[in-house]
Simulated assay, not measured.
Amino acid sequence: MNFPQLPKSTTYLITGTAGFIGFYLSKQLLQNGLHVIGVDNINDYYDVNLKYSRLEQLKQYENFTFINGDISDKNMIIETFEKYKPKIVVNLAAQAGVRYSIENPDVYIQSNLIGFYYILEACRHYPVDHLIYASSSSVYGANKKVPFEETDFVDSPVSLYAATKKSNELMAHTYSHLYKIPSTGLRFFTVYGPMGRPDMAYFGFADKYFAGEPIKIFNNGDFENDLYRDFTYVDDIVTGIERLIHHPPTDEVPHKVYNIGNNNPEKLMTFIETLERCLSNAMGKQVVFKKEFEPIKLGDVPATYASTDALQQMVGFKPGTPIEEGLQRFADWYVDYYKVKEINTLTQGSV
């Protein structure tokens, strides 16, 4: 399917630009010669050095403008829209993490609800061609019907994080109804890849291994009824977003929601074994994790599995990067970025 070139005169506002997906999307748009305004508050939810490393890459582009700010700062958001008048807005700024939302609920309300409200208000007063925003596969809760389809019941979230993402969809629908803001919500499914989020399991497994520590697997050691996850490589996410930019909803209520997932759930243990092989390849020697099994954590769900039919029908694209390929790219990056040669001898002894 052929798509028109994105007009070079259009200004793109990407929030969460120092974050994982925000970085890759911004970089892709910048490489296409587009003008990107990036907003991020560089919070310390995880290692800020990784965020600064991403930003340093983006700042190499002359067509990139960075604003260090929080989307829950209403004045900053309004001033940004007033000054730059973005026509495409991609809101990827949010407090992420299911488990962290149980420990620290305040930041989820501040960023995911109040911050998103200010984005919507700005799009209302400074009209945009398309607002795309991050939702999450977590809105499906403990749904047992698979694959998850956009028309499924999503009114039983099992974490505050999921509740904020479902709220975003409702808020966006309301603003689309009242003010005809073309908006699209994207339900991401377990995104992974190089320069990813250290709070994600695959990244944490690598950290634990090189620290000489066991990894914790929250499936009770039940291999027959293991957790399933629809692991989605970050490049597939970016391709989906980039194509959807061309397709703002045109219905009477111009609001749509799409899954972006790999449509191929893997057992968690299969994913772990693949990561061991990929790290072994990157290190040139065998890597085997020490494993500890624990009960599933509060707020976790047993399976995620995306139907991507709606996305494919709209833009002719279906994520499909196999985990062997995606995890190898992550492992190669990790070994190079952190310059790891062996397990930490202070904690593990000689290797």
Rank of each mutant, 00 (worst) to 15 (best):
Q5I: 11
P7G: 05
P7W: 10
I14W: 02
T15Y: 12
G16M: 12
I21D: 00
I21T: 05
L25F: 08
S26P: 02
H35A: 14
H35Y: 11
I37S: 09
V39I: 15
N41D: 11
N43Q: 04
D47H: 06
V48F: 04
L50G: 02
L55F: 07
S72A: 15
D73V: 12
Y84E: 02
V89C: 07
Q95L: 04
V98P: 00
E103N: 14
N104H: 07
S111R: 02
N112I: 15
Y118A: 04
E121G: 09
R124Q: 08
L131R: 11
Y133V: 09
S136W: 07
S137F: 12
V139A: 05
V154T: 14
S156I: 06
S159W: 06
Y161I: 05
Y161S: 03
A162E: 09
K165G: 06
N168L: 13
M171L: 15
Y175S: 04
L178T: 13
K180P: 08
R187F: 05
P198C: 12
A206R: 06
D207F: 12
K208S: 14
Y209M: 14
A211W: 08
F218M: 09
D222P: 04
D222T: 06
F223G: 03
Y228M: 15
T239I: 15
P249H: 14
P249K: 15
V253R: 03
N264I: 00
K267W: 05
L268Y: 04
I272C: 04
I272Y: 03
C278S: 10
S280E: 10
A282Q: 06
M283T: 09
V287P: 12
K291M: 13
P302C: 05
P302D: 00
Q313H: 13
V315Y: 05
G316T: 04
T321F: 07
E324T: 15
E325K: 15
G326P: 08
Q328K: 15
A331M: 01
Y337M: 13
I343V: 14
T345K: 09
